[in-house]
Computed example of a mutant assay.
Amino acid sequence: MENKIALITGATSGIGKACALTLAKMGFDIIATGRRSDRLDELGKELEAGARFLPLVFDVRDREKVAEILGNLPADWSAVDVLINNAGNAHGMDPIQTGSLDDWDAMMDINVKGLLYVSKAIIPGMTARKSGTIINIGSIAGKEVYPNGNVYCGSKHAVDAITKGMRIDLNPFGIKVIGIHPGLVETEFSLVRFKGDDKRAETVYQGFEPLVAQDIAEIVEFVVSRPAHVVLADIVVLPTAQASATLVNKNPTK
Results as ranks from 00 to 15, higher is better:
107 M>I: 07
176 K>Y: 12
114 G>E: 09
109 D>P: 00
142 G>M: 03
230 V>T: 13
27 G>I: 11
11 A>M: 06
20 A>F: 10
234 D>H: 12
77 W>G: 04
10 G>I: 00
173 F>E: 02
58 F>A: 11
111 N>R: 04
163 T>G: 06
171 N>W: 09
37 S>K: 14
53 F>H: 06
62 D>M: 04
21 L>N: 06
235 I>M: 06
102 D>M: 14
104 W>F: 11
233 A>C: 14
94 D>T: 15
9 T>D: 08
208 F>S: 06
112 V>M: 07
187 T>E: 01
179 G>M: 14
174 G>E: 09
72 N>L: 04
61 R>S: 07
129 R>Y: 02
97 Q>V: 15
24 A>M: 05
89 N>R: 11
3 N>L: 04
3 N>T: 12
207 G>Q: 04
128 A>H: 13
217 A>D: 05
152 Y>A: 10
208 F>N: 02
182 P>K: 03
115 L>D: 00
141 A>F: 02
209 E>C: 11
161 A>N: 02
203 T>C: 00
173 F>Q: 04
135 I>F: 03
84 I>N: 03
155 S>R: 07
222 F>I: 13
215 D>F: 04
190 S>V: 11
7 L>D: 05
184 L>N: 15
25 K>H: 13
107 M>F: 04
111 N>Q: 07
54 L>P: 08
229 H>V: 09
222 F>Q: 11
175 I>R: 02
199 K>M: 07
121 A>G: 07
208 F>R: 07
148 N>R: 15
82 V>D: 03
34 G>T: 00
35 R>F: 06
22 T>W: 05
5 I>Q: 00
